[in-house]
Design a protein around this nucleic acid. Structure first.
Length: 801
RNA sequence: GCGGGUGUGGUGGAAUGGCAGACACGCUAGUCUUAGGAACUAGUGUCUUCGACGUGCAGGUUCAAGUCCUGUCACCCGCACCA
């Protein structure tokens, strides 16, 4: 029989809402638990079935922790600034604030229909001036410490959004948001010095409990490498500094390459005889999009500088200098020493330009290819380094370079500073004023929030200026320092700004004096468990760690890391195993599932679908199993007989409590549910359940299916509400069974299964095994070589003829 | 190229080195029904079925391997001309 889920679910959602059931307490003496899921971007499409996978998982943890007596903060909010809203607003001539309001209302309704235990009294919205006041405040602190600066530089420019993008927002050469081509454009941009924190962002990963793939991906993205900077003298007498991770191969450097954008080229312009060819190459490189420029396996191109050469500082040899786009201006010094014998790229280039290739580490065949995997080789053709191992040579050459003052050891990172300006309307205004006399001047903190002005048209401009630039009334202001005429910054902040600190605001969301009170920060920090998508690993997760470290340094927050634990859920794919998308026509709408099966079934199914950390395809037939399970739970009500815990159920019950309790903490929701299903199957076989057994059972199911279990609690007449009950405890001793079935193997093959006393010793177990007919037959006339007994598992008798 | 991961029935997936396939879907048969996209019962890895074979493939370690080691293939994710 089906219970009336929609009636029950609406009823309990209203009760929870009216009573503020899940509002956390401000009693800072209680043990706390801060569970966090990534707040959604309220898009026009509404909730995706992927959202509830993460939200349900931590809702289960949060609900369980409440029953265990913790003061649980499980908040929700809206990451509502951003391009899609603005694009929708432009297309449909609706103000982005209205679009946001509508989308938020829809999302909130959908989330409530799923029965999440969010503390809605702490709801936040990044587009609320009372919220972004503090986003702007943090920006000003960064500015004051020199970590926010304006710089003219080549940036990623999305041709469709007409806006710059951070490196992290360019995926495969195209815009992460709209998929359009991204080209390089030189613009003056606000930048944040995340590179200053590169080492700490790596080091402190050791202090947090993140799943390994997140740590690995962040380390990879930051991309630390160690090597040396070496100064080469040019024939013009200039210093040309290169960065190399292989200073030991310096004797093999047969030419140099500088990037097409290298500033030295302009300095040497009048000494170069082939400036036309050089200019042409520079222009060709500049025209290329990021995608073209990073296309793999393309032929090496370049132009030799005619008129300027360099001297290899260790052997005094004169070597040519080239420009080539395989050297990036933004990494290292924008110049390299090329060692074709031991670097594949240099090798390809040397072959293309017929340059000498000198082997300096023995062991490879440089006639065929570059010998790069040479860390264990011995140095040759390298003067005083000859005969040393690569490791020894590295030390010796650095000592040499330092003594001669022509080089030093150096650490480099792939991580670049964060491009923080966006030429769009729907974002936080950057609270800076530009004064001809005083330069860039911060808006006084008392003037925050600097409210985003209402505009008639928020279309992006073709000249690359923010739509705000047209608001002359707003743009023209006075300089906070000298009082003279000045102009406001018209770029806005990227979407990542508001989400870089939002979790702090949940701790004290209505504070109008500080971003959060000291007491609240002390009590709630750090976040105990943060679950979110892998796609944010090098974006939001890295950015927010950076901001948090900065806030820690200036004494605002009490911990160096924001998140004690980070986990990540797998994607929910379409029924055909492909990523859900409108164009593939495989999108499942959560509203339909809630309508047809109810929120409890939806929640249960998303947790049962498979390994939480792995992607799993949606199955419209599998969900019925979860629906059936809840029907069976509901129908147990009719089977209640008597009280107490029956002796023949006790072991099963305790094992189920144990399994559910530990599996929830280990992200193994699927096996926790399987254990509950098994237990119910056992009860059905027995034909009845006692009131006390039922009480424990529905408490265990409550975090997964909160509505139906609350209803059953009341139907049974138990005291209060289930959300005020206590999480059941298991007794390790009661988990054990008196007898256990073990396998008996002969030479590793199972010959029999016998039932023995759980506490049997080896002698007893083996005797029992040998008493079995089949075992006796198998070993008769054979020599027993070895007997193995694994308690509670098996006996293995090893025999020989 | 670098980093991370995954290969188990018809399907989703379980298995601290210790009985492979828990749990669920699906399927088959049955009961009850005017009816079944309901409920319940039984069965369901494969085969040449008193046995043998089975966790991508090939080896190895071990009394014992889905699990550990070596090699190999395939696929997925992230980064990528980062010197």
């Amino acid at each position: 029989m089906k219970y009336n889920f929609s009636e029950i679910e609406k009823k309990w959602q209203k009760i929870w809402d009216d009573n503020g059931t899940f509002q956390c307490s401000n009693d800072y003496t209680k043990p706390k638990f801060f569970a966090l899921v990534e707040f959604p971007y309220p898009s026009g499409q509404g909730l995706h079935v992927g959202h509830p996978r993460s939200y349900t998982a931590l809702d289960i943890v949060a609900r369980k922790r409440r029953l265990e007596g913790y003061n649980v903060l499980y908040p929700m909010g809206w990451d509502a600034f951003g391009l899609p809203t603005e694009n929708f607003a432009i297309k449909n001539h609706i103000h982005p604030a209205i679009v946001t309001k509508n989308n938020v209302a829809r999302f909130k309704e959908q989330l409530k229909s799923l029965g999440f235990s969010f503390d809605w009294s702490r709801e936040i919205n990044t587009t609320d001036p009372e919220y972004y006041k503090w986003t702007q405040w943090i920006f000003l602190q960064l500015f004051k410490k020199g970590l926010a600066y304006k710089s003219e530089m080549a940036v990623n420019w999305c041709t469709s959004c007409k806006c710059v993008l951070a490196n992290e927002e360019v995926v495969g050469g195209v815009c992460e948001r709209c998929g359009s081509e991204v080209v390089r454009k030189t613009k003056s941009q606000w930048m944040l010095k995340i590179t200053e924190y590169a080492q700490r962002l790596i080091d402190d990963l050791d202090t947090v409990d993140y799943i390994d793939r997140v740590k690995a991906q962040q380390r990879n993205w930051i991309g630390r490498s160690t090597g040396a900077e070496v100064t080469f003298k040019s024939s013009t007498g200039d210093d040309l500094v290169v960065y190399t991770t292989r200073p030991d191969t310096l004797f093999g450097a047969t030419y140099m390459v500088i990037s097409p954008e290298h500033p030295m080229i302009e300095k040497w312009a009048d000494k170069l005889n082939n400036m036309d060819a050089i200019r042409e190459y520079q222009q060709a490189a500049a025209r290329k999009s990021d995608f073209e420029r990073t296309e793999v396996a393309k032929d090496k191109t370049g132009v030799k500088l005619d008129g300027v050469t360099a001297i290899n500082p260790v052997n005094g040899k004169e070597i040519p200098i080239f420009i080539s786009d395989y050297v990036l201006v933004s990494y290292g010094t924008g110049a390299i020493m090329a060692v074709p014998a031991h670097d594949t790229r240099d090798y390809d280039f040397a072959k293309a330009f017929d340059l000498p290739i000198i082997e300096v580490v023995a062991g490879g065949d440089i006639e065929k290819e570059a010998f790069t995997d040479c860390e264990t080789g011995i140095m040759v053709n390298s003067g005083f380094l000859d005969g040393l191992t690569v490791e020894e040579a590295k030390k010796a050459i650095i000592k040499f370079l330092e003594e001669k003052e022509i080089g030093k050891s150096k650490v480099n990172y792939k991580l670049r500073d964060w491009v923080f300006s966006r030429q769009r309307y729907w974002g936080e205004p950057i609270p800076i004023v530009h004064c001809e006399k005083c330069g860039y001047v911060p808006v006084d903190e008392s003037q925050l929030p600097l409210v985003l002005p209402d505009v008639d048209s928020y279309e992006p401009t073709d000249n690359g200026e923010s739509p705000l630039a047209k608001m002359t009334d707003w743009v023209n202001t006075t300089c906070p320092v000298c009082g003279g005429a000045a102009k406001r910054e018209t770029d806005t902040m990227p979407q990542w700004a508001g989400s870089s600190w939002y979790f702090l605001r949940y701790m004290d969301p209505h504070n109008d004096k500080e971003l959060a009170s000291k007491e609240a920060l002390e009590y709630w920090s750090p976040i105990d468990w943060y679950n979110g998508g892998m796609e944010h690993t090098t974006l939001h997760l890295l950015y927010s760690r950076f901001w948090h470290k900065f806030l820690y340094d200036i004494g605002v927050v009490p911990t160096a890391e924001p998140y004690a634990k980070r986990t990540s859920h797998g994607m929910i794919l379409g029924e055909n195993g492909e990523k859900m998308s409108k164009s593939r026509g495989n999108v499942v709408n959560p509203d339909d599932i809630v309508r047809d099966y109810g929120a409890d079934t939806m929640r249960l199914y998303e947790m049962f679908i498979g390994d939480f950390e792995k992607a799993a395809p949606w199955s419209s037939s599998s969900i019925k199993g979860c629906s059936r399970f809840l029907d069976r739970v509901f129908n147990l009500f009719e089977m209640i007989e008597g009280e107490g815990i029956r002796a023949d159920i006790e072991g099963d019950l305790h094992r189920t409590i144990k399994k559910v309790t530990t599996d929830i903490e280990d992200l193994k929701f699927n096996t926790a549910i399987a254990a509950l299903m098994s237990f119910i199957n056992t009860i059905y076989e027995k034909g009845s359940i006692t009131k006390d057994e039922f009480k424990i059972l529905i408490t265990l199911i409550n975090p997964f299916a909160p509505h139906v279990t609350e209803e059953l609690w009341v139907m049974c007449g138990f005291e209060g509400m289930l959300n005020q009950a206590q999480w059941p405890k298991f007794d390790e001793n009661k988990c054990k069974e008196a007898t256990v079935e073990i396998a008996v193997q002969v030479n590793g093959k199972v010959r029999a299964r016998i039932s023995i006393d759980t506490e049997s010793d080896q002698a007893a177990a083996i005797a029992a095994a040998k008493a079995d007919e089949k075992v006796a037959a198998a070993i008769s006339g054979m020599n027993v070589v070895k007997e193995i007994y694994v308690k509670g598992k098996l006996v293995n008798i090893v025999i020989k003829p």
